[in-house]
Design a binder for these strands. Sequence first.
DNA 1: CCCGGGCAAACTGTTGACAGACTGCACTTG
DNA 2: CAAGTGCAGTCTGTCAACAGTTTGCCCGGG
Lengths: 251, 251
Amino acid sequence: MAKIRQGPSALEIVRTRSLASLVGQELEAMILDGRLPAGERLNEQQLALRLGVSRGPVREAVRGLERSGLVVSVRNQGSYVRSISAAEALEIYDLRAALTGFACARLAGAATAAQLRELEALVQRMEAAREADAAPAYYAANLEFHAALLTHGGGPRGLRIYEDLGNELHLFRRRALVEPENMRESNAEHAAILAAIAAGDAEVARAAGEAHIAGGKRRFQATDASQPAARPPVRPAGPRRTGAGRREGAG
Amino acid sequence: MAKIRQGPSALEIVRTRSLASLVGQELEAMILDGRLPAGERLNEQQLALRLGVSRGPVREAVRGLERSGLVVSVRNQGSYVRSISAAEALEIYDLRAALTGFACARLAGAATAAQLRELEALVQRMEAAREADAAPAYYAANLEFHAALLTHGGGPRGLRIYEDLGNELHLFRRRALVEPENMRESNAEHAAILAAIAAGDAEVARAAGEAHIAGGKRRFQATDASQPAARPPVRPAGPRRTGAGRREGAG
DNA sequence: CCCGGGCAAACTGTTGACAGACTGCACTTG
DNA sequence: CAAGTGCAGTCTGTCAACAGTTTGCCCGGG
């Protein structure tokens, strides 16, 4: 189950986070879960109204998202949710493979007992989810597993980069990545990674980590080929504005 | 000589870039070349006045820099140029090693003749700079070499991540990284990388790339130990404001 | 002499308003 | 009928102003 993230109190949030950062968080969530699909235009006024704030914080938030690659902006024209090509998606997979391999290699031999237990528990959680055919649970545990790998093996920066790349990947297409067969294959690879780390063999661990992401890339390509899905979305280099000009009938 | 980057005309710049992006570029340059040292507080009003703009664009720019890791912000207190610890610097080296190794491996066997020529020319430029004991020239060519490596082998994203990490590294301490002896050693490693790529051996290329950055890390540690330099700079978690309270004499 | 309350200043966070740019439709013209 | 021009509307870019908070100094008390 997803833990209810109690976190800081509402008052604490208001005291420590600025509106802009909260708006940024909300926009990021909206982009990642598809409420703002790739290619969508971000209307500042509308967003500000919808979120109950002024345009200033919205602009600041969008600027942050632009830097993180989720949004592209064109002067005097607006900001758009970035859309990436299939080729870019594959490139992202390659980078994630390199990062994961790096983290695994570094973890092999350096992992603490607690870290190994954590990873082991996650693999078991995924195994249980797979047997129960619970894709969302598997998905969540999978995220945690990779986050743990990167945190312990790649440090906060490695994790950050990995997650940013994952976010970009979400821009490609809205799609459930996990299917029953994939879960089995995927978790077997997880187990292989864990085994290599536990054994302390850096090179094997690296290869296992890279192979796992490469497997994800392969599965991605397979599902992608079967579902051409969304058409090459609105080009961010000059999309037409939606509602300009006269709106009411001429007469 | 550094080419004069003619680039787009002034009018073109004004038409395509917003003030916020220009301010961001300027702030980034100021941070990277040390005009805004690590730990320094960013006074919005002062910066706005100095750059001849209003506070809005400055705030947007700072928000972007925050996302890219050069700046940290605390609500109601201000933004500070980030300062990183020695441990973090070493971590960054490790990540750069992984990325460089990845790019080299990918380039081996996939490099075009033109790309090989480009890398070869850069190695020769560095060799010439080394013989002339021209550290700045070497430094520039070195940057180009690594940028070419990452561009051709890691794609735009790989390059971007690599450069962001390099920028973060600049936050650690202002220091000339290149010394005569280092240049010799460093360029020998460049040649080894190039040879492995040209030979098409991915694993050797990866090892050479990783070893080169590891060498940089070693050289970094060596110079670091000899020059403790700047004291552990102002903590970004609560530095005192400079000029508050009464300014003019009491009576 | 040390410590806590109070006051004043500066700065950030946020908002509202204004000017410029771009878009799209309707109309005129060859 | 096709192409060019004018016009209105919306939206972004930028600025100036207001409110809240934090910070530092001053002063009175123990």
